[in-house]
Simulated assay, not measured.
Amino acid sequence: MENWNITADFILLGLFNHTGAHQFLFVLVLIIAFTSLVSNALMLLLILLDPRLHRPMYFLLSQLSLMDLMLISAIVPKMAIDYLTGRKFISPAGCGFQIFFFLTLGGGECFLLAAMSYDRYVAICHPLRYPVLMSWKVCLSMILGSWFLGAVDGLMQAAATLNFSFCSTREIDHFFCEAPTLVRLACADTSVFEYVMYICCVLMLLIPISLILISYSLILAAVLHMHSNEARKKAFATCSSHLSVVGLFFGAGIFTYMRPKSYKSANYNKVVSVYYTIFTPVLNPLIYSVRNSEVKGALQKCMNRCAAYE
Rank of each mutant, 00 (worst) to 15 (best):
N3A: 13
W4V: 11
N5L: 04
I11T: 07
L13G: 07
G14E: 02
L15V: 02
G20P: 01
Q23D: 08
F24C: 02
L30Q: 10
A33V: 00
A33N: 00
F34Y: 01
S36M: 02
S36E: 01
L37M: 07
S39F: 08
I47Q: 05
L53R: 07
H54F: 04
P56I: 03
Y58W: 08
F59T: 14
L60M: 13
L60G: 09
L61I: 07
S62W: 10
L69Q: 11
A74K: 04
A74F: 03
K78V: 07
M79F: 09
A80V: 15
Y83L: 11
Y83K: 13
L84C: 15
T85W: 13
T85G: 12
R87A: 11
K88C: 12
F89H: 15
S91Q: 13
S91G: 13
A93G: 04
C95Y: 05
Q98C: 05
F100K: 10
G108F: 07
E109H: 14
L112E: 12
A115N: 11
M116S: 15
Y118S: 12
D119N: 15
V122F: 03
P127S: 08
P127W: 07
R129D: 15
Y130K: 14
Y130L: 09
P131K: 08
V132R: 14
M134V: 09
S135N: 13
S135A: 13
W136D: 12
K137M: 10
C139S: 15
C139E: 11
L140W: 13
S141N: 11
M142F: 14
F148V: 14
G154C: 09
L155P: 04
L155W: 14
N163W: 03
T169P: 00
D173E: 08
H174Y: 14
F176V: 09
L182M: 15
A186F: 03
D189M: 05
D189R: 06
V192M: 10
E194G: 02
V196E: 06
C200E: 04
C200D: 08
I207N: 04
P208D: 06
P208K: 06
L211Q: 11
L213N: 12
Y216H: 15
S217T: 15
S217K: 12
L218Y: 12
I219K: 04
L220W: 10
L224K: 13
H227N: 12
N229I: 01
N229E: 05
E230W: 01
A231E: 09
A231Q: 11
A235L: 03
F236N: 06
A237C: 07
A237Q: 09
C239Y: 01
S241D: 03
S244F: 08
G247T: 10
L248F: 07
L248N: 01
G251R: 03
A252F: 04
G253C: 14
G253V: 00
I254G: 04
T256H: 09
R259P: 00
P260S: 05
S262Y: 06
Y263A: 09
K264Q: 12
Y268W: 08
V271S: 05
S273C: 08
V274S: 05
Y276G: 00
Y276R: 03
I278F: 02
V282R: 00
N284Y: 10
P285S: 09
V290I: 14
V290R: 03
N292W: 02
V295L: 15
K301N: 11
C302W: 06
A307H: 02
Y309N: 06
